[in-house]
Amino acid sequence: MKPRSLTYRRGIDLSIRVISSLAALFGIIMLGWILGTVLFKGAAAINWAFFTELPAPPGMPGGGLANAILGTLLITLLSVLIGVPVGLAAGVWLAEFGQESKLAEVIRFAANLLMSTPSIIIGVFVYVVMVLTTGKFSGTAGAVTLAIIMLPVVARTAEDMLALVPSALREAALALGMPRWKATLGIVFRAAQTGLLTGTLLAVARVSGETAPLLFTALNSPYWPESFNEPTANLTVTIFNYAMSPYDDWQTLAWGASLLITAGVLGTTIITRGFIWYRSR
C-alpha cells in the first residue's frame, strides 16, 4: 500500500464526512419538500364540502370527494377481509407445519415473487380474470387486486412473528392436552399478537395508497358507491384523473385527496411504528 500523508488522509476523511452529512440532509429536505407541498396545496382544498359532497363538474363552485373517500374505505375494508385471513393462514402453515419442508420453501419463494411483482401486473391479471369475463369494472375486482398485493406481505410477516414465539410455549399447551388449532390460535397467536397486528396494519397502510392496481379494476366513478358490482369511486384513481385534467379546481381537489391519502397512510405507519418502538423498550 502506498503511504499517504496524514493531511491527505484526514482531508479525504473530512470530505467524506461532509458529503455523507449533506446526503442525509438532502434526504430530509426532499421529505420535507414533498410533505410540505402536499400539506400546503392540500390544505387549500380541504373544507366541509370536500368530505360531504359529490364532485362537481369543472367550473362549478363547491363539490367534494365524499364518494371517493367512502369508496377507498370500502375497497380497503373488503380487501382486508379477503387478504388478511388467507395471509394469516398461509403464515400459520409456513411457521407451524411447513417449516423447512420442500413445499414450504416453494411457497416462500412464490410469496417473495408475488411481493416483488409490480402492482400494475396484478391489476392486469385481475382485469383479465374478473373484468374481461364479467364485462364490467367493479369495486370487488379492485378489492381482490389489493388483497392479492396484501397476501404475501401478511403471510411472510405472520410467519416471522409466529416463528419468534418460543417452542416451549407450544409444547406446554400441547402437553396440557390442547388440540393444535387451539394451541395455535389461543396461545401462539396471543403471544405474537403485537407483531401480527402491527405487521398487518403496515401492509394495509401500504396497500390503501395504491393506485396502479385500481386503474383498470375498480376504475372510478362520479357517484356514490352503491354496489361493488360497478365501477367504484376511490381517492387514488381520482387523484390521477383530476391531476391529468386541465381544470384548476379539479387539480385543487386532487391535492386535497393527496393530503388525505398521505395523512392516512403516513399516520397509520407512524402510529404503528411508534407503537412497536414503545413496546420494545
Partner: peptide, 20 residues
C-alpha cells in the same frame, strides 16, 4: 425520516413530480 420516504404512496411522488 428516511424510512418515511418509503411510506409515501407513489401517486404522491407523481403529483409532486409533475407539479413541483
Amino acid at each position: 425520516a428516511i424510512e418515511l420516504l418509503a411510506a409515501i404512496p407513489s401517486i404522491i411522488y407523481g403529483m409532486w413530480g409533475l407539479f413541483v
